[in-house]
Structure formats: C-alpha cells, structure tokens
C-alpha cells in the first residue's frame, strides 16, 4: 500500500511537474515573509537589555542553524526511503539537499562567529555546539565528495544513503550539545515542551524569519533537485517533452 502510494506520487516526473507549479508561490510567499520579518526584527523590536543591537543577527543565525540540522534529518528520512523502497526520487533529493545543507551550515557558522565578537569577545570558541556544527559542515562536504567520486550514479546513491544514515547519529549530539556539556553557547530559547524564554516582541519576527528562511531553502532544494533530475533522467522521453 505504502509502496504503491510512494511509487505513484514520488516519481521524478510527477515531482518535477508538481514542484514547477508550486515553486513561484512558495518563492514569493517565503521572500515576502522573510523581508517583513527581517524589517520587523531589525527596526521595530526593542534593543536587548544585555546584548544591545547585536542580538538582531538571530533573524539569520537561528533559521540557518535550525534548517541546517533539519535538512540533515530530511536527508536521513529520504535515504531510509531510498534504501527500503528503492524510490529513485529520494536518492535525487539526498544528493540535491547536501550542497544546500552545507551552505546553510556555513551561514550558521559565519553568523555565529559575527555574533560571538560583541557577545563573547571572540569570533570562535572550541565549544561543544560550535564544534559539532563545524563537524556537520564537514560531514556535508564529505557527503558531496563521496557522491562526486563515483561515476556510477546507482552505486553513488546507495553509498551516499548509507553514509547519511550512519552520520545521522551526530544530529542528536549537535542538538543536545548545549544540554549535555557546559558550553559558552546558550541553550535553546524556544523548545516544544517549555514556554519560550524570549520576549514575544522578538519571538514573532523570529518565527517569521524561520518560516521565510525555510521557504527560501525549500525553493533552493527544488531548483537543485530539478537540475539533478535533468541530469539523471536526460535520456528519458518525458524529460525531452518537458524541456
């Protein structure tokens, strides 16, 4: 039943047509939400009592950090689907997400460094959260290198999926690093179980920026996956009709 559903709705052809239709809407809405949230966060929210204006980088840093881990989680799910049900589209998505994941992790690291100068007095610390995020970045680069080193795409897809699944053990470590170790990095201000420790005037634009940023990243994943589908399915008749 699940297999039939996946095969019917997750063929590269169906995916390509669906995302092409949805892309402009997602793009425009995400950009609008992100711009409004950034404007709200930068100009309409008050200064932080301790950090002054420097905290406003959260509207880039927090969404980038969140999405860098979420993308890896997405890759792990897609890898499992590929290995269990042999869904080609999942393998394409894993390959397409990796560079976007590396980019968002890089943004998280750089924005964190910039924020570190006024708040911690240093742009880098060998802190559990920062180091684990750097490890995530290196992992993304490793995944890209692994796939690119094989000329045989089928083999590359399998190895990539296995490595993504094995590497997913690092995600809980990154997430929980601020709880498990005494770190310079603050613990999460927004959790599912507890009330946010951030003031609502700063919280709402933060939520907006996270939604907007996620939408923009989804658009990038769509573009990257479309490109990958063109490369992999170039000999299929339907792709010639599509182009």
């Amino acid at each position: 039943m699940i297999k039939k559903f996946i095969h019917q709705f997750a063929s590269p052809k169906t995916y390509l047509f669906q995302v092409t239709r949805a892309y402009p809407y997602i793009f425009v809405i995400s950009i609008l939400i992100y711009i409004i949230s950034i404007f709200w966060g930068l100009f309409l929210t008050p200064e932080d009592f301790v950090q002054g204006n420097s905290y406003r980088i959260i509207y880039l840093h927090v969404p980038a950090s969140f999405i860098s881990q979420a993308l890896y989680g997405g890759m792990a799910i897609a890898s499992a689907i590929f290995l269990i049900w042999k869904v080609k589209l999942s393998a394409y998505l894993v390959k397409s997400i990796a560079p976007i994941g590396a980019m968002t992790t890089f943004i998280a690291l750089i924005s964190g460094s910039i924020w570190g100068i006024p708040t911690w007095g240093t742009w880098w610390a060998w802190d559990a959260r920062i180091v684990s995020t750097l490890i995530l970045f290196i992992m993304y680069l490793g995944l890209i290198s692994l796939h690119d080193s094989f000329a045989n795409y089928e083999k590359a897809d399998k190895f990539l999926a296995v490595l993504v699944l094995v590497g997913s053990v690092n995600i809980p470590i990154i997430k929980m690093s601020v709880e498990w170790w005494s770190t310079l990095h603050q613990s999460a201000s927004i959790t599912i179980s507890d009330k946010p420790t951030i003031d609502p005037s700063m919280l709402y634009p933060l939520f907006g920026s996270m939604i907007g940023f996620t939408g923009i990243v989804v658009c990038l994943v769509i573009l990257s996956s479309k490109l990958h589908i063109f490369v992999r399915e170039k000999n299929k008749s339907w792709i010639k009709d599509y182009v």
Binding site: I135, G142, S145, V166, G167
Partner: peptide
C-alpha cells in the same frame, strides 16, 4: 578518512 572522521570526533 574525510567521510568517517566527523563520525568519531564526538
């Protein structure tokens, strides 16, 4: 090495 080093760093 590149792909497994990050796994042992924790």
């Amino acid at each position: 090495t590149l792909i497994t080093m990050p796994l042992v760093l924790p």
